[in-house]
Nucleic acid binder design. Structure first.
Lengths: 332, 332
DNA sequence: CTGAAAGCGCTTACAG
DNA sequence: CTGAAAGCGCTTACAG
């Protein structure tokens, strides 16, 4: 309720001096500072963020865009971002993008320095036109789980990850290895496709011909993965192993296996991707990608950019790791 | 980059007129409006949020405080909040509170109309002094999964929920029923205690004397729940059923049972609380509380308050539901 | 070390 | 229907 003018009045100084005290400017006499601080305390004065933002031209705010409900992994990345930003002086404004329409609105509105100082985008590709507009607005950006030639980003090598998963199954003697993944999304994700490419490359390298019907895709989600698996298990020659493009989908695969009376891993090996928390609940073998760390690193990069460091179009690639638990075993 | 003054200049009008066009004020001639809109379009003009906030005295921002990593259920509530607020004109500023220290800082800083218009607090009790200060700042507040005499809130009846869980186990013929829950937290949560109270009441009603050592508490988390269960299972007379105060803890219970070679539900029945997504993965019986809906309803209440409706200290109590899956069965 | 004043970019009575 | 001007509450050169 109190304003800087009232504080100045009560302390018998000018507003400029109060402002200097507020901002830790050293050129204020100790006696004056003490007096001003006492008045601030007494009046329970808090500077208006809105006024400060306007006059400084900064908002101390970072906009974080994330497709929230879409995947458990996005939440994990967000945690990394929020944890890191908490110790900074920046606030996090959360934009949850579900529909492509919302995505477009949000991204276009965000190219606006008056509402946030910087932009962190999780698991959402940016179009060239959008990047251009953001650059024009001189808005620092970092992409987490996204890639763009002109924007700093944090990713993993999904193709290598797909290879890793498939090779694990091949090493266990499996030859009938199927893939369950995502259809192309309206947002333009490519992770699932990249993982499939890695899977196919690994099979090729092992001299195994691709089988028709062994690659299944549907919109992301456990339920549809379950259904695709039902179809796979009903084939004349069903797979002995399945690589799911995400742990969420692997959970659907496990569900279908259980419903079909297939013992995992005796009858069917299953491997996922991500290592979300639920993966360890069900002892799922998977390819771990550092989700939390990706958010953490992305936030750090952004803070560095806000600190004035020119990041350039750097891409940080985080390491993947095969995590063998109880859902994969030797074939036969 | 463009300002309202430049738009006005280019359109040959005053800034007031541009402002009126921006805000949909009807008293602008159609011709003028068209001309102004054309200039806005051409200059790619976007009003400065900071300037608007300062002059309107509102920020179009809702601060959401949530103990984020602490529990899967908090994330689910947050989803409900964010989903509902997305279709409003309000932005969500996320405050993730992990340490009690952070909690205090955040809550005290938040009593400030210049940085947000309203406050939504998830799973965090508010102290009287804090409520008083918030009221003084005339800041609308809603508590989700919290209770306070003077603040609108959304909760469930945890005592009744505890009863529901225990009675389910009793109905199945169990007499040696243990409880695994949380120690009092520095934040002052009481859900676990309330659920335990319900559990104890149900046992009492059934004429079953409380057994020493059957009630175990530790800080929230799967791992510690696992350890407590190990101890329970090592008792001379181990329980035949365990009620965990949350699904997260129930997952730890299941882990311990598996490690100890106890078949669930043949040797041990397990029931949780919450019905987080992972519960269905592992076929966990549980008491479902509407997590997403609690966030959704909380956000709606807050929007109503922001719309000028006086809410009063209403408390909305959502319904609980027993969900029987595969981890509970008849005793013996 | 400090004050007076301009400026940040909007909104909104107030006149006309 | 529209313009000129005050006001929102800070920050920051500019003088002194």
């Amino acid at each position: 309720l109190a304003t800087i003018a009232e504080v100045a009045e009560h302390a018998g100084v000018g507003v400029g001096t109060v402002s200097r005290v507020l901002n830790g400017d050293p050129r204020v006499a100790d006696a004056t500072r003490t007096r001003v601080l006492a008045v601030i305390e007494r009046l329970d004065y808090r500077p208006s963020a809105a006024a400060r933002n306007l006059s400084r031209g900064r908002t101390q705010t970072i906009a974080v865009v994330v497709p929230f409900l879409t995947s458990a992994s996005a939440v994990e990345r967000l945690r990394g971002v929020v944890d890191t930003l908490r110790d900074s002086s920046y606030h996090v404004v959360l934009f949850d993008v579900e529909r492509p329409q919302t995505r477009d609105d949000v991204v276009s509105r965000l190219a606006d320095r008056s509402s946030s100082d910087a932009l962190l985008v999780i698991s959402l590709p940016l179009r060239d036109a959008e990047v251009a507009r953001l650059e024009r607005a001189r808005m620092p950006i970092v992409l987490v789980d996204g890639r763009h030639g002109r924007v700093p980003h944090v990713t993993v090598d999904d193709v290598a990850g797909g290879r890793l998963a498939a090779r694990h199954l091949l090493d266990l003697g499996h030859e009938r290895v199927a893939f369950v993944g995502d259809t192309p999304t309206p947002f333009g994700f490519t992770s699932s496709d990249d993982r499939r490419a890695g899977y196919e490359a690994a099979l090729r390298d092992a001299g195994i011909a691709p089988r028709p019907g062994y690659v299944r895709v549907a919109p992301h989600g456990r339920e549809l993965a379950r259904r695709m698996t039902c179809e796979l298990l009903a084939l004349d020659e069903p797979p002995t192993a399945i690589f799911a493009a995400s742990d969420t989908q692997a959970l659907g695969v496990l569900e279908a296996a259980r419903a079909a009376g297939r013992d995992v891993p005796a009858d069917l090996s299953v491997i996922g991707f991500d290592d979300i928390e639920a993966a360890s609940y069900v002892q799922l073998s998977t390819v771990r990608q550092p989700l939390y760390e990706s958010g953490d690193l992305g936030a750090r990069l952004l803070l560095r950019a806000l600190g004035g460091t020119e990041l350039g179009p750097v891409g940080e690639t985080l390491a993947l790791e095969l995590v063998v638990r109880a859902t994969t075993a030797r074939c036969g």
